[in-house]
Design a protein around this nucleic acid. Structure first.
Lengths: 203, 203
DNA sequence: TTCACGATTGAACTCCGGTCAATACGACGG
DNA sequence: CCGTCGTATTGACCGGAGTTCAATCGTGAA
């Protein structure tokens, strides 16, 4: 309609490879879902920001939820990569280094991390599975360091609680005014909690 | 259209008081949002289940999010009421009793509690405030028992972490097969974590 | 240069959140 | 027993958002 008035080229089509387009869309999703709530972000917003048509987004992701899931999965994978620790170190050092890496990741991502991990649509099964996998990965990493001998079933429950402690503590750290608590103190407390937890269990 | 075929009375209008209607809708919301994700639950679903028109729901709640917030608020209030402990008891006993009450509440509500507290729309500011208030209430309750003397600002951050520990642990307890961990062990571990946390801080 | 594959479009469809004027239930006064 | 009045309640309507799909055109290979 008004198209004739604008001086733009008739076809704005810029063909891209599937990976680059997918990457662009996921990156956009990280920005959008990291800022606004799931149901406030519209497919049209994404498409417009990407400079593509709505239909194309559905060429890459079957549904909005799948799109969100893919975005979350990417964030989760980033977190996993960012917290890989040199396996030759002492388990104690690895714990502290891992916690530091985790906190650095949280600090770098800021509110986007909060919105993605906490917000979103937690009660959706697909989403819940992704979040559980992230937490499960950390738990498995910790369990690998433990002697396989006395490993009560209750341990996993408590470790999941510990992960909750670290997550919640990190968010509080992010939101609190600077000087409230130091990164070092967080690391120290978290590892001391874990050690006492393991000590209680494995005796 | 088909209405004539059914033997129902032409007008199904059953006028109710505002409180009873509101209560019915909130109860329905607890069931729906406790089962399905926020954006999967439609206003039409609720209205149909309540036997009313969509418009009436908007007579009570200005928006879907406000409706959800009201439902959440009710659940939060229930939890608060369910965890009121006799203030004449020892602080130590109060802690254990409170934890037991919390776990009983979680067990009674089951997955619905999970969906409401974790799921929902966490990144929505209004919702986040409600959830923060619930956690803040527990933290304040704990803080009331402490001597006001050495109360570092970091304490609140760690207490929030402890609440996260309890929440996550409770969910894992719910989902785990019976016999994995006992309620008593959970209470013991959670209070021992809290005590050691406070011990580290207040020395 | 041609061809064919597939990335890309845009219009159409449906469902859903939200609005609003009209309606009728039921309590109250006469 | 009967208006009549407030308001709980309806139903039709709207714009927007998710989703579908046939048509289109850019691009690498032959």
């Amino acid at each position: 309609m008004v198209r004739a008035a604008t001086g733009e080229k008739k076809t704005g089509r810029t063909r891209q490879t599937v990976e680059s387009r997918r990457g662009q869309l996921i990156a956009l999703g990280l920005a959008f879902f990291g800022t606004r709530a799931y149901d406030v972000v519209s497919i049209d917003d994404i498409a417009e920001a990407a400079g593509i048509s709505k239909g194309l987004l559905y060429h890459y992701f079957p549904t909005k939820r799948d799109y969100y899931a893919a975005v979350l999965e990417t964030a989760a994978e980033d977190l996993r990569l960012q917290t890989v620790i040199d396996p030759t170190l002492t388990s104690d050092v690895r714990l502290r280094t891992g916690l530091e890496a985790y906190l650095d990741f949280v600090k770098a991502r800021g509110p986007a991390y909060v919105a993605l991990m906490r917000g979103g649509i937690g009660s959706d099964p697909v989403i819940a599975v992704i979040l559980d996998r992230v937490r499960g990965h950390f738990i498995d990493t910790i369990l690998k360091d433990l002697p396989p001998h006395p490993r009560p079933r209750a341990l996993r429950v408590l470790l999941r609680g510990w992960v909750g402690f670290v997550e919640e503590t990190s968010l509080a750290w992010l939101e609190s005014p600077p000087g409230t608590i130091s990164r070092a103190q967080l690391v120290a407390t978290a590892s001391s909690v874990l050690v006492s937890l393991l000590g209680d269990m494995l005796t």
